[in-house]
Design a binder for these strands. Structure first.
Lengths: 331, 331
DNA sequence: CTGAAAGCGCTTACAG
DNA sequence: CTGAAAGCGCTTACAG
């Protein structure tokens, strides 16, 4: 059951391979009758161009890699972040007639596989997602000479084009809001220290507090709900009188709400809570969550466009999209 | 920044392209000194074989497609099913030195893209996951002549090799258990009617009840927690006196627990609940969930082996793995 | 053990 | 507008 080749189509239609190629690739200059005959032969034979042969001559694959530096259990989890990015990236890429190849690379072995895959010419470009500080991929992929962009500011100083939201600004807005509402002891549940989304939001928090001459109180989480619940417990041990907490993600804020409820605190009466992301679930928590809305999908679409437009001639400036504070009942 | 070719490596090492190819592909019969010289050249140049060129001649890609017939929001959700399958399939495939290409295809457009991708020769075989009754992919992919297997029994009658757990038997065990505990009015929350995991579990439920001369009471869900909560509400409206429910997935059982709690029912005192899957969360519900353990990862590994071993000479028998009832406090 | 040569299935200047 | 021909970067019988 070997698949038919250009040659077979050409023979059937009684034309040369060059002509079949032109028809298949939509070249304008083909006699309408000949085109019709070729299309008929394509149809009858069920011809689909062999991508390997095409790539070999065009030096393109029309595929783009979306590489996520997280393990499956994190990517396929209740965190809607990945779903939103994958969906937005896919739509944008498909409308440009590119195939998306999703790869997870959270271990050195996985990273090596991705590097070989990319170096082997399987894709025309790469989108990096959820980069951690120590990730060797940006440097490794840069060596392939292919265009690479990152969703989220990379921790390393490589000048990798990227898109992100204004993490520092969003965190500032959240903390200012809490201070304006009269909160005096504002803690934070920070994200992983090896990710800029974690460190930038922590920086924004610290900045506003120190400008207001207040002390910081931080516990670390890993962006998951469970880690948020645990961090909240530690914060309450450190300072049982805290009256507000800013969590670096909604999921961690939801975990914090759980802990607060279990320790008998009322929200927002005793402790105000603000999250970050504005995931769908933020509207359905009890009470509904005040949060910093982050345009994840817009950033995704922007970096796809950066990737497709990449012109080695001039360096690409990062795209930073604004966030927006959404005030609900938890603060 | 064009990547180096075999030619360049050969020139640098002072040998023919054939020899470089042999070294790169690990052929035994190469003089150790020459091999060393070639490897040095490969290293110095950072040579990685061009996959398109290699595929063109070998007619292999060493890649396998994992095609999931669900939208991103479902695949990237709190349902651990996909994470478990992706992880198991990846491990098994990687240990056979194959690349996994994950593709979602939940719309006609997506299915068409997958079909073209596979027909274009990008993969050596395909694993189908979460097939729905009307899915055109099995038939379309069969036409490519490539090996195809399914995780889960396909609804259509195509003789597609597949692996699954014993859905009917698992459901039977769950319902028998409820009857043995003295439950008299056993309802069920069934899965989607266009998926065999839904219909087979419903069939097992019905079988046991009618053998015991009891009436069935079913409400449909779509495997998600939300749908389980809603289905439970409908069941209670239909029969406020039911004293047990078998849900076709743990997530739906968890949704049912919510509804039961909200309507003031005690579990298991008033209503016993049994799920299906034994996901991690089943141990942490309140009360811990009795459920039918399903070997999702084992099935995944089995079908990968079926795919890799596929010999067109003889039809492959399905692999059906047993389930196991895990009794906890909800029943 | 090694090399010269054919060929995988396409695209694309180049002629006509 | 169409075709003959070169060539993309590999692998693999076939000689030697």
């Amino acid at each position: 059951m070997r698949r038919p080749t250009l040659e077979a189509v050409a023979a059937r239609a009684g034309v040369s391979r060059a002509t079949v190629s032109r028809v298949v690739n939509g070249s304008a200059s083909v006699n309408p009758e000949i085109r019709a005959a070729v299309l008929r032969a394509v149809d009858e034979l069920g011809y689909v161009p062999n991508s390997a042969a095409r790539s070999l001559v065009t030096q393109r694959t029309d595929a783009v890699g979306l590489v996520v530096s997280e393990p499956p259990s994190r990517v396929f989890s209740d965190d809607p972040f990945f779903s939103v990015v994958v969906r937005a990236v896919s739509q944008e890429l498909e409308s440009a007639d590119k195939q998306v190849v999703l790869m997870l690379a959270s271990s050195p072995a996985g990273q090596a596989r991705v590097e070989r895959y990319v170096a082997g010419g399987h894709v025309d470009g790469v989108i990096l997602l959820s980069l951690h500080g120590s990730d060797p991929l940006p440097a490794a992929l840069a060596r392939t000479g292919l265009p690479v962009v990152s969703h989220g500011r990379p921790a390393s100083t490589d000048r990798l084009p990227y898109g992100d939201c204004d993490n520092v600004g969003g965190a500032r807005a959240a903390v200012r809001h809490l201070l304006e509402r009269g909160r005096r002891r504002v803690a934070t549940i920070a994200g992983p220290p090896d990710m800029t989304a974690g460190t930038d939001r922590l920086a924004g928090y610290r900045e506003v507090l120190s400008a207001a001459d207040r002390r910081s109180l931080a516990a670390l989480g890993d962006f998951t709900r469970e880690s948020g619940a645990a961090a909240m417990r530690r914060l309450l041990e450190d300072d049982p009188d805290l009256d507000a907490v800013f969590a670096a993600t909604d999921l961690m804020a939801i975990g914090a709400l759980q802990t607060l409820r279990r320790t008998g605190r009322r929200v927002p009466d005793d402790v105000a809570v603000v999250g970050f992301d504005d995931i769908e679930a933020a509207r359905f928590t009890d009470p509904p969550l005040t949060t910093v809305r982050q345009p994840i999908a817009e950033v995704a679409r922007a970096i796809v466009r950066m990737l497709l437009a990449q012109d080695p001639a001039h360096r690409q400036e990062p795209v930073i999209l604004p966030t927006e504070l959404v005030v609900r009942e938890s603060s």
